[in-house]
Computed example of a mutant assay.
Amino acid sequence: MGASIIADMLNLRQLEILRAVVQYRTTVGAAERLGMSQPSISNTIRHIETVLGFPLFERVSNRLAPTEEALILLEESEPLFLLRDAVNQRAADLRAGRIGRIRVASTAEISEAVLPRVIADYARDYPRIQISLETRPLDSVLQVVENGVADVAFVIAAYERQALHYELVHDLRAVCLCDEADPLARLEVVTPKDLAERPMVGPQVANRIGLMFADSFRANGLDYRPSIETRFMNAAARIVREGWGVALVDELSAFTAMRPGLVVRPYGPDLRFDLSAALPRTKTPSRQTQRFIKAFRDRVVTRIAEVRAASQRPQG
């Protein structure tokens, strides 16, 4: 008699009562174990015997000895109990947040500057959580959250989309990355006029951050014309790290590319970009996603504090 056939004839609670009586050899002991009354146990056993059409116990010296049929029945039903226990354990793990998955998307700047440390720490703390990371341009990152491919996206200076809700994580300041021997390194604040005619690398005007830099130049009567344009600010910072020019980037990208001999100076006017978590507007984020966002925010707050402390004083 297979487990599926047993399940069609008897429910799991009836099988559990049968197992308890076999274990304790008395209906009283089974009743205490299951928190039921003794008459309920006896009635259930009689009902099972009626359904099956054969006896399950013989009374021997005031104890109930299981028949061979009862033992075979319990052996066949054991997979049902194992499955129940596994489901209960999985439910407990889910409730405690020990298992699950998190699908994360971000632009390249965040994937390089913050997420590796956050993901590594999270994976150590929750080894049974499956984490995936998609690194894409801003439009694509927002789209994968809208389409349900990602649970959350971390983005800089995102624009409004009807299907998305943005949870502010931190504001990022615009900075100038340059060589410590460059005259810019001795300035308290680097302005568009200081960058005029300089070999500069920065975000392309085709994206929002590039437009924000262009507006700040235009307000000073200057054109924003980087000699080298990049889609992602971490790429701009890496070019300066390799020894060419100066870069206008966000502070996280600048410090990710730091090496001995480079410095970061504040950019003026005070230009800031929102670093946000993008979430579906119509779906409540899972507890795992909420916990990951908190871990991300905590890491960003710590990192920004380190970044700003290191860039307070000019060189020389």
Rank of each mutant, 00 (worst) to 15 (best):
D270F: 08
N220C: 15
D223L: 12
L52G: 14
A108Y: 15
V189E: 09
P269I: 14
R173E: 14
T289R: 11
Y24G: 03
V152E: 00
A70I: 04
A237I: 03
D270T: 10
V141K: 03
M36N: 00
V169S: 06
V51Q: 12
R291P: 12
L142P: 00
S140F: 07
D121I: 06
L195H: 00
L275Y: 06
I209D: 00
I102C: 13
R208Q: 14
F273W: 03
A20E: 05
D298Y: 03
I209C: 05
T27V: 11
A20S: 13
R98T: 14
R186Q: 12
P79G: 11
A235S: 09
A92E: 12
G53N: 13
V155Y: 06
V155C: 09
A196G: 04
I48L: 05
P192C: 07
D179Q: 03
E167P: 00
S61D: 14
P285G: 02
A70Y: 00
G268W: 04
Q130L: 14
A92L: 10
L172G: 07
I228E: 06
E146Q: 10
A247V: 01
M9L: 15
E32Q: 08
R33L: 09
Q130I: 13
S286G: 14
A235Y: 01
G221A: 02
E32W: 03
G221C: 01
